[in-house]
Design a protein around this nucleic acid. Structure first.
Lengths: 222, 222
DNA sequence: GTTATCTTTTCTGTATACAATCTTGTTGTT
DNA sequence: AACAACAAGATTGTATACAGAAAAGATAAC
């Protein structure tokens, strides 16, 4: 693997994981030394992260880890609404229905797992990743897949900031399962509307969680 | 302006204008010499264009100008549907209505200009750019604006390939004017639906034009 | 005490050199 | 004649050196 890729992955992971919190200023020399690559591949990584919207180049100051606020979360959800409703619609029209029927079963299983007190989050996140992959394969639109990929990276970061409790996970699982069902029966309108509902509720849940989290951080600072 | 920016702009312009047709293989040394910059900033430009989806890195062969086919046009329109309907909805909710009322007047004027046989295309494209800018300002969502920007660059390339005739421009102007009207009166549902209609018809028009164009190219080759 | 200017230091942007990998063409063998 | 192996060449990825610009700090002037 190329040095620039390693630097990109590492930095992205650290940003998503919150190890590099929003507002952190990253110097080229400093980071190239830390990551053990020279400035050239590091700059490539920086540029990609700027294009992704994970870093911002502040005029004279260098690159800064982009802020995550309630506003940016809302902005993200507004894009998701447009994009994912459309993706759900297309998936309902084009998907291999068998795939989504099986996926539906898996959601049914995982719901009892989460209820049963198993390590719920992991089960759920894995299943969600499977769902995303199934959507990507179904829509057969590389350009849309690429756009969705970026959205998901940002969402991963938001989720880390606002970890959910089992009750919320279960809600989300139910909502997603309905989308899966709609796609499995080829009902495009239902798929789109169920996605809208899911995103609306998810936005509420995430906003609440982020608000709590930000309040905690502010308290710590004070 | 930085050398990497100049290289990026120049290459993007040439790709959009069709001077670098789809399939053209670009070598690093070759292009850095042609553009008068060293390999380092050129690579930065290449990377940005790859991220934009204008270039593809073929495993051992180098970067290649990405293909434009009927399929990719359709893919682009599918993303536009999701994104621009949402943008229109948000704009209807948030826009300064005065701005869009004035824009409506301008569309009214330009329609007679196009009808009157003036250099129609330029009038229309300028007005369209104004419309895009007004949307960007209205929605107040930097993340969505960034996503839209990329879509529009791709559309510019498609439009160059499929130049429209005055009749088609006039149709498009009417459709867009309705979107403007919907936003001016704050009717989000109408704005979204008018956008859907516009994109549907635009897709038909562009597909037809691209089909003709591709047929012509194939004839020349044969 | 405040402001302005100059100097020093750091950082960004670019060029270039080097190393490793992959292509391609040629030669030799079956 | 076909295929394989090797060598020459090109090309990509990385490191590093240098130049120019910008920021911070210090000193001087008002």
């Amino acid at each position: 693997m190329r040095a620039s890729d390693r630097a990109y992955r590492k930095l992205l992971d650290e940003i998503v994981a919150g190890e590099l919190p929003a507002g952190t200023v990253l110097g080229e020399v400093e980071q190239s030394e830390r990551l053990g690559v020279s400035r050239t591949p590091l700059r490539e990584a920086f540029n990609r992260l700027v294009a992704d919207g994970m870093l911002n180049t502040e005029p004279g100051r260098g690159v800064v880890v982009s802020q995550l606020s309630l506003e940016t979360v809302t902005e993200l959800y507004e894009v998701r609404e447009g994009l994912e409703e459309q993706a759900a619609r297309l998936a309902a029209q084009r998907a291999d229905k068998e795939v989504f029927k099986k996926l539906w079963e898996e959601f049914e299983n995982s719901k009892s797992l989460i209820l049963g007190g198993e390590i719920g989050a992991n089960v759920f996140y894995e299943l969600n990743a499977k769902f995303d992959d199934a959507i990507d394969e179904a829509i057969q639109n590389p350009y849309m897949v690429a756009t969705l990929k970026n959205v998901r990276t940002h969402m991963a970061r938001v989720r880390k900031l606002a970890r959910s409790n089992p009750a919320r996970l279960l809600e989300a699982a139910s909502e997603t399962q309905l989308i899966v069902e709609a796609i499995a029966i080829g009902d495009a309108a239902l798929a789109a509307h169920a996605t809208h509902v899911h995103l609306h509720k998810s936005h509420s849940r995430v906003s609440a969680a982020v608000r709590e989290q930000l309040a905690k951080i502010n308290k710590e600072v004070a």
